[in-house]
Amino acid sequence: MSNDLVRHGVAARYSEAAVFQGVVYLAGMVPERGDTDIAGQTQDVLAQVQTRLQEAGSDKSRILRAHIYLSDISDINAMNAVWDAWVVPGTAPPRATVQAALADPAWKIEIVVTAAQKA
């Protein structure tokens, strides 16, 4: 664990992740494809979250909090079915889920997580 700030996936406008003092901060993860239903988009985004966490020395069991943005809140039950199957039992993090206008109309979901690095 380092006290130095480390950024991963740095682009001109944002980084995919930043790690500081053992905490991993992920950017909002959105679907790579907008032509699937909410279940498919949720699976896509959670796979990206898992990959980014692993790259930063963490994993989904160490998520400290999650913010989920849905373009249509009526998709919450289908999204929850995928989320519930993905979360490690006994490690469900504090979470907020809200309806929001997302940057691309094809996106149905965006997820932001903060996680602890592995010791």
Rank of each mutant, 00 (worst) to 15 (best):
R52Q: 08
A56M: 03
T91Q: 12
L64F: 08
H67F: 14
N80I: 07
T97S: 12
P93R: 02
D84C: 03
I63Y: 01
D59I: 08
S58P: 04
Q54E: 15
K60E: 15
T51Q: 10
S61D: 10
L70V: 04
V112I: 11
I76V: 12
H67L: 12
A96S: 14
R95N: 11
I76W: 09
Y69T: 06
L102H: 04
R62K: 13
D72W: 11
L53Y: 01
L102M: 08
D75A: 04
A78S: 10
A106G: 05
Y69N: 09
P89I: 06
A103C: 09
W83I: 05
E110T: 03
A115F: 07
V82H: 00
P105E: 09
E55P: 12
S58M: 06
D59M: 05
I73Y: 12
A85M: 01
W83H: 07
D104I: 08
I68Y: 02
T114E: 09
W83Q: 02
A92S: 15
K108G: 02
S71Q: 13
V113T: 08
N80Y: 11
A96P: 07
V88N: 04
V113S: 00
M79R: 02
P94Y: 06
D84F: 15
D84A: 09
D84S: 08
K108V: 10
L64C: 11
L53T: 00
V88W: 03
A106R: 14
D75R: 01
W83T: 03
A115K: 02
A56G: 02
V88Q: 01
T91H: 15
L102V: 08
W107A: 05
T97L: 11
T51C: 09
S71G: 15
A92G: 13
V87M: 12
I73T: 03
W107M: 04
R65V: 15
N77F: 14
I63N: 04
I63G: 05
S74E: 09
A78N: 13
A92I: 15
S71L: 09
A103W: 03
G57S: 03
N77Q: 12
A101N: 14
R95P: 02
R62T: 07
A81V: 05
W86F: 06
T51E: 15
A96R: 12
A106K: 11
N80T: 11
V112C: 03
L64D: 13
A106F: 04
A100M: 14
L70T: 06
L70E: 06
I76S: 14
D72K: 10
R62H: 12
P94F: 04
S58K: 01
V98P: 01
V87K: 03
W83S: 01
S58I: 05
L70D: 01
K108W: 00
D104N: 08
S61E: 01
N77R: 11
W83K: 01
W86H: 06
V98Y: 11
I111A: 00
L64G: 13
M79F: 15
I111H: 00
I63V: 08
S61V: 00
H67R: 13
H67C: 11
A106L: 10
V82P: 01
V87W: 05
W86P: 04
D104M: 04
G57E: 06
D104P: 04
R52F: 06
R52Y: 10
